[in-house]
């Protein structure tokens, strides 16, 4: 589904990704972990098409197509979804209207008819239940005045509405209390299928107790320095990142 080869990217003059290789197949959950500043969020942003970053080398294929050639909105319509670390507040735009526009643009792109009002509402209701989010919240301006937990639940709600093929969750767990974390994790787990894939970008192992990854990768200095299974996450939780850094620095 997603094939990243030797991906390098920088922001302004600063090299952040220095050659990432990653293969993600349908049905898989990958966790990307790493210390602060290792490039985790940059990787998520580059995949979603944020223009602040300049890709300086490597390639990314998504379902056989060159992802890097696509604008952010085309990527989304092709099935890439980024749950933001810091969801943006947009005054004057309600989540409901926003989702209607987004969903219908995606459907149009995929050759489907726009949803009628009844079907749209039905879908809204169903997905709202999944992330335990209230209608009144969705009628309000997008994320404006939402609590941290509400913002993150809204991200998962949007993901549920849009049904992406590849979901990238950028530190969706950080700052969440245990209830909100459970709700978010439950949402992600319910949406998981044999046809879609998930990349969890996280600093902590805690999320991985609720969403069990098939693979765990450790990012350090813009490279994946270690890959393993969920046991690797437990090891990191126990020992911290220093031993990884030492190992990586020694081989560098």
């Amino acid at each position: 589904m997603l094939s990243i080869k030797n991906l390098q990217a920088r922001i302004e003059e600063k090299e952040i990704l220095r050659g990432i290789d990653l293969e993600v197949k349908p049905g898989e959950v990958h966790a990307i972990m790493g210390p602060n500043g290792s490039g985790k969020s940059t990787l998520a942003s580059v995949l979603a098409g944020r223009e602040d970053y300049e890709v300086t080398g490597g390639e990314v294929a998504f379902q056989g197509n060159d992802l890097l050639e696509m604008d952010a909105d085309v990527r989304a319509r092709e099935g890439v979804f980024l749950a933001f670390q810091y969801p943006v507040e947009i005054p004057g735009v309600s989540t409901t209207n926003f989702m209607k526009t987004a969903l219908n643009q995606i459907r149009e792109h995929q050759g489907e008819k726009a949803l009628d009002a009844v079907s749209f509402l039905k879908r809204m209701k169903e997905k709202m239940k999944l992330v335990e989010i209230d209608q009144s919240l969705l009628s309000r301006s997008l994320n404006e005045g939402f609590s941290g937990g509400e913002k993150k639940r809204n991200e998962i709600f949007q993901m549920a509405m849009l049904e992406p093929k590849l979901a990238i969750l950028d530190e969706t767990d950080s700052g969440l209390d245990i209830d909100a974390l459970r709700i978010v994790a439950n949402g992600v787990n319910t949406l998981k299928s044999a046809d879609n894939a998930t990349i969890l970008v996280t600093h902590y192992q805690r999320l991985l107790e609720y969403i069990v990854p098939d693979f765990v990768h450790v990012l350090y200095n813009g490279k994946i320095v270690k890959s393993g299974t969920k046991e690797l996450a437990l090891e990191l939780e126990e020992k911290g990142y220093d031993w990884i850094k030492e190992e990586a620095d020694a081989t560098a």
């Binding site: 604008d71 909105d73 319509r77 969801p87 943006v88 735009v93 526009t101 987004a102 301006s141």
Partner: peptide
């Protein structure tokens, strides 16, 4: 707001449409 523009785009909304949504919202009050 470029961040808001990217947010809307990242949900599949075309750039020009996203821009219009944000400006309409700005004028909405």
């Amino acid at each position: 707001d470029q961040e808001a523009l990217f947010y809307l785009q990242s949900r599949g909304i075309q750039k020009d449409k996203a821009r219009a949504i944000l400006l309409t919202a700005f004028a909405s009050d």
